[in-house]
Lab assay of single mutants.
Amino acid sequence: EWCEALHSFTAETSDDLSFKRGDRIQILERLDSDWCRGRLQDREGIFPAVFVRPCP
């Protein structure tokens, strides 16, 4: 499952995944309604679900 970043997100901890608006992120797991775990290029981490939308 893939999503597109609606806003940029800067990691606040070593577990977070930083990304820029427009990045396509592979969703690996939905942790709960607020957080997802994903992969961007060679990095993995968690990020807020409200920062992304599903890719068509």
Rank of each mutant, 00 (worst) to 15 (best):
1 E>G: 07
2 W>R: 08
2 W>S: 02
2 W>V: 08
3 C>A: 07
3 C>L: 05
3 C>I: 04
4 E>A: 06
4 E>Q: 07
4 E>I: 13
4 E>L: 09
4 E>M: 07
4 E>V: 11
5 A>K: 00
5 A>G: 05
5 A>Y: 00
5 A>T: 04
5 A>V: 02
6 L>D: 15
6 L>S: 08
7 H>L: 10
7 H>C: 13
7 H>Q: 15
7 H>F: 12
7 H>N: 13
7 H>D: 12
7 H>K: 14
7 H>G: 09
8 S>C: 11
8 S>Q: 08
9 F>V: 08
9 F>R: 15
9 F>M: 06
10 T>N: 15
10 T>G: 08
10 T>R: 11
10 T>I: 09
10 T>M: 12
10 T>E: 13
11 A>G: 14
11 A>Y: 00
12 E>L: 13
12 E>F: 09
13 T>I: 05
14 S>Y: 08
14 S>V: 12
14 S>R: 12
15 D>C: 10
15 D>Q: 14
15 D>V: 13
15 D>K: 14
16 D>H: 15
16 D>N: 15
16 D>L: 14
16 D>A: 13
16 D>P: 03
16 D>C: 13
17 L>I: 03
17 L>S: 01
17 L>A: 04
17 L>Q: 00
17 L>V: 01
17 L>H: 00
18 S>K: 02
18 S>P: 08
18 S>Y: 04
18 S>W: 06
18 S>T: 10
19 F>K: 03
19 F>G: 02
19 F>A: 04
20 K>E: 13
20 K>L: 07
20 K>R: 12
20 K>A: 09
22 G>Q: 02
22 G>K: 04
22 G>W: 01
23 D>K: 03
24 R>S: 06
24 R>C: 11
24 R>F: 11
24 R>A: 08
24 R>N: 06
24 R>L: 11
26 Q>K: 03
26 Q>G: 02
26 Q>H: 11
26 Q>N: 03
26 Q>W: 08
26 Q>A: 07
26 Q>D: 02
27 I>E: 02
27 I>P: 01
27 I>S: 02
27 I>H: 04
27 I>V: 13
28 L>A: 03
28 L>I: 13
28 L>R: 01
28 L>C: 07
29 E>Y: 06
29 E>M: 05
29 E>S: 07
30 R>F: 10
30 R>S: 07
30 R>A: 06
30 R>W: 14
31 L>D: 15
31 L>P: 08
31 L>Q: 07
31 L>W: 07
32 D>N: 11
32 D>M: 04
32 D>V: 02
32 D>S: 10
33 S>A: 09
33 S>E: 14
34 D>A: 12
34 D>F: 11
34 D>S: 08
34 D>E: 14
34 D>W: 08
35 W>G: 01
35 W>H: 13
36 C>L: 14
36 C>G: 04
36 C>Y: 15
36 C>D: 01
36 C>S: 07
36 C>T: 07
37 R>G: 03
37 R>Q: 04
37 R>Y: 14
39 R>A: 08
39 R>S: 08
39 R>H: 01
39 R>L: 10
40 L>G: 04
40 L>Q: 06
41 Q>V: 08
41 Q>N: 15
41 Q>A: 11
42 D>H: 10
43 R>H: 06
43 R>D: 10
43 R>V: 08
43 R>L: 06
43 R>E: 10
43 R>C: 12
43 R>F: 04
44 E>M: 09
44 E>P: 03
44 E>H: 06
44 E>W: 02
44 E>C: 11
45 G>T: 00
45 G>F: 07
46 I>A: 08
46 I>T: 13
46 I>F: 14
46 I>C: 11
46 I>P: 03
46 I>V: 11
47 F>C: 04
47 F>S: 03
47 F>W: 01
47 F>Q: 00
48 P>R: 11
48 P>E: 01
49 A>G: 10
49 A>F: 13
49 A>T: 13
49 A>D: 06
49 A>K: 05
50 V>I: 10
50 V>H: 15
50 V>K: 15
50 V>R: 15
50 V>S: 14
51 F>Y: 15
51 F>G: 06
51 F>L: 14
52 V>C: 08
52 V>F: 00
53 R>L: 06
53 R>Q: 14
53 R>N: 07
53 R>P: 03
53 R>A: 12
53 R>G: 10
54 P>E: 12
54 P>D: 13
55 C>F: 13
55 C>W: 10
55 C>L: 14
56 P>C: 15
